[in-house]
Amino acid sequence: MTATLRPVAPSDCDLVCRHRHDMFLAAGDADAGAAAMTPAYAAWQEQALRSGAYFGFIAEVDGTAIGGVGLMVVDWPPHQLHPEITQRGYVLNVFVEPEHRGKGIAKQMMAAADAEFNRRGVTHAVLTATDQARPIYEKDGWVLTAQMGKDMR
């Protein structure tokens, strides 16, 4: 199945928030799913869409949104593995509605993400993958890296 991809727009804010919520629930993370629906996240998402800091694609079939992928370009210090790179592409909110999974929609969206990063001169990108999605990304050349986090509150 091939979906039609269109650029995400500020009017898609509620859709992106719902996809993010459903993405976390599908991954088994109810707490993160609830956090995705907070007013703070929605306000951030709306501002990021309006400013263009968050861009990406919505996948549609017969005019109905069935998935999406979010993209950002973030400043990042040069690293020993990438000593000349001062920005990274960041992929987030990759989601396909359950009834459309396994049909190549995520692969189509990720190919569009790659092309958009290339168009913007981004040469290195990162994402966070669930255990369920990791094999899909690995088939597309993504590699597992070590990353840790700490709550500083």
Rank of each mutant, 00 (worst) to 15 (best):
V94A: 08
G33S: 01
A26C: 02
P83E: 10
R50V: 06
A34G: 09
A59P: 03
A26D: 13
G28T: 00
V74S: 09
E97A: 10
Q47M: 08
A27S: 12
E84S: 05
I66W: 01
Y90F: 12
Q87W: 06
V61T: 02
I58L: 05
R88L: 14
E46Y: 07
A40L: 09
P39Y: 03
H79C: 02
Q45F: 10
P39R: 12
A106D: 04
G63W: 06
Y41W: 15
H82D: 04
I66T: 02
P83Q: 04
R50D: 04
P77C: 11
A26W: 09
T64I: 09
E99R: 14
G28W: 00
V94F: 00
V91R: 01
E84M: 04
E84L: 07
A43V: 08
E60H: 06
F55D: 06
L81Q: 14
V69Y: 04
F24N: 05
V73H: 10
A34K: 15
A35Y: 10
V73F: 04
N93L: 07
A48Q: 03
T86P: 01
V91W: 06
Q108C: 02
G68L: 03
A42H: 15
W44I: 02
G104E: 05
V69M: 08
G56I: 04
Y41T: 09
A32L: 14
T86E: 13
F57Y: 08
G28E: 06
V91L: 10
G63I: 00
L71S: 01
P77F: 12
I105Y: 05
Y90R: 13
A48H: 07
R50N: 05
V74I: 15
V91Q: 03
H21A: 12
I105G: 02
M110I: 04
P98H: 01
V74D: 12
T38R: 10
G70W: 02
V73I: 15
L92V: 07
P39L: 14
F95A: 05
E97W: 07
L71C: 11
W44N: 10
A35N: 14
E46N: 14
Y54E: 13
W44P: 04
Q108H: 05
A36I: 07
Q87M: 00
F57C: 08
L25A: 09
D31M: 10
F55Q: 07
P39G: 13
A53H: 06
A35R: 15
N93H: 13
A32H: 07
P78H: 07
F24W: 15
P98E: 02
E60Q: 07
G28Q: 08
E97R: 06
A65I: 01
G68N: 03
Y41G: 01
G102T: 05
A42Q: 15
E97M: 02
